[in-house]
Amino acid sequence: MIKIAQLLLLLALPLLSSAQTVDDILSKVLTKLNSVKDYKVSATIKANIPMIKILPNEATIYFKQKDKFKVESKGITILPKQGFTDINNFLAKKDYIAVINDTVTTGGVKTYLISVIPNSAGGEMILAKLWIDPERSVIMKSQITTKSNGTVTTSYTYGDQVKYGLPSKMVFEIDIKKFKLPKSVASDINKSSAEKKKKIGNKGTITITLTDYQVNKGLSDSLFK
């Protein structure tokens, strides 16, 4: 009987240690993200979305804790609705269950694939999958599934701001199945029904290259109004 109990304990040990590691890993990531009180960064936004034609655009992105976010651009820019502040906010609440699913190599970096599920069903987020580099405590890839916005997968590349957990490049993969054009506005009598029905893909990408970070320089609240 004692031997069976010891065996069960032995089997459960990795799970227990895994649970501690998950909290530890996420806590380190969150600490790093929270070390950024504010930032200003220049962004080059390149969208490759089947139903949207737009040239690459320059913008300036401002962020201030905890969820103030602003994009300034000369022209029209397209950004994903989620992926900038929502992971920080979600992890900061600590109202979730997290488990390590696997160890995966992403972008040549060994990462832990961690699934994060919110405890309450009332929030917008359904599931977050995070690929975390335990060495640098940064998110290398994320897959966020929300109730209203579907699933957005984001890959992160880091440069000299890795100490703050701020990426130098983000690639968002967006689900465009929900995109619909209002028929009355989009009707084009020059195109036959066969032309209109040509198949388009289900995924689009938005690549944001971030340069010239100015971190913790103190941004005024009035900037975000």
Partner: peptide
């Protein structure tokens, strides 16, 4: 927004539209 509604579920349009 009548035109961009379905896109704005996933994307945000920034700038002087």
């Amino acid at each position: 927004s009548f035109v961009t509604a379905s896109f704005e579920q996933t994307l945000t349009f920034n700038g002087h539209i």
